[in-house]
């Protein structure tokens, strides 16, 4: 009985994402070079790295938006290679994403944007969906904005609305791509608080890609540091801060590192041109 209790206490939290030796290419170029990582239930995992390190690419693979070259990946215990189309659709209902630019549908109001997943995946009547959308807007402090069009919102408000849409189905995993990018420090800090609140209030696992150090250290339970398609380290905030790795030191202290940089590869990674042509059309 005592041993059971000890093992219960010391047992690692359930892993909601497991990636093993993930290799990915854009055309002939190897973008992810054997990435192995995991995300535990209820934690905020920050993926950090410089521009062109492959962090946004890794996020696209974690969201199952791209096809890997090799390796194994499971989401919520399901190996994505073995899923049928229907099972895959079912899995995706448990994922929420707040994209960097919000990705709100410009032809719909904020409220309609948030109701869309409910409309497509539940049999709820419109009034119930409207109530749920309003509740999620309250959570992101956008109550009363449901009738506005996305073009009528500021950058920070669009990101908040994107969070509301991402969590409307109460997903198990929330992905956030550069939540603080392009925002002033006060708005960025408020978004960090929102991410922490979502984790605490809804108990979801959150994966955040960012290059903002302050934001990463504020919200992360663990940090994955990515560099040119490799994982340099996975650790807690303190472990990353105290790392003796030179490249991590350079990243944390904003030291420019142009050693062995292939300009074509760097440009392609920044612009994502290869990604666009390589991806399936729709």
């Amino acid at each position: 009985m005592g041993e059971d209790m000890v093992s219960e206490i010391t047992r690692e939290p359930e892993k909601v994402i497991e990636v093993e030796d993930l290799v990915a290419h854009y055309g002939d170029r190897e973008i992810l070079k054997g990435v192995t990582m995991d995300v535990r239930a209820g934690e905020i995992m920050v993926i950090m790295g410089g521009s062109g390190s492959g962090k946004s690419t890794l996020l696209r693979f974690l969201m199952a938006l791209e096809t890997k070259t090799s390796g194994r990946m499971s989401i919520l215990g399901q190996d994505i290679d073995t899923l049928t189309t229907q099972e895959f659709t079912g899995l995706r209902k448990k994922l929420g994403v707040a994209f960097q630019g919000g990705a709100l549908f410009s032809s719909m109001t904020v409220g309609e944007n948030i109701m869309l997943p409910l409309y497509e995946h539940t049999g709820l009547d419109r009034m119930t969906m409207e109530i749920m959308a309003r509740m999620k807007l309250e959570v992101v402090e956008l109550g009363g904005f449901e009738d506005l069009m996305p073009s009528e919102l500021s950058g920070g408000m669009i990101k908040r609305a994107a969070f509301a849409r991402a969590v409307v189905m109460d997903p198990s995993i929330l992905f956030c791509d550069e939540p603080s990018a392009g925002l002033d420090p006060a708005v960025a800090s408020a978004l960090d608080d929102l991410i922490l609140n979502l984790r605490d209030a809804m108990g979801m696992s959150i994966v955040v890609v960012t290059h903002e150090l302050e934001s990463a250290f504020k919200i992360a339970d663990r940090i994955t540091v990515l560099d040119r398609g490799h994982i340099l380290m996975v650790g807690t905030v303190d472990e990353v801060r105290n790392s003796s790795n030179e490249r991590i030191y350079n990243l944390l202290n904003r030291v420019a590192d142009n050693e062995n940089l292939d300009p074509d590869e760097y440009l392609a990674r920044l612009t994502g041109e290869d990604a666009a042509t390589w991806s399936e059309p729709l």
């Binding site: 659709t89 899995l91 209902k93 994209f99 630019g101 990705a103 410009s106």
Partner: peptide, 16 residues
């Protein structure tokens, strides 16, 4: 425009 704004990616992730 939807592709550039990642709206198509958003649809895919929503399972639509």
């Amino acid at each position: 425009t939807m592709k550039i704004n990642q709206e198509i990616d958003a649809l895919k992730v929503m399972g639509i």
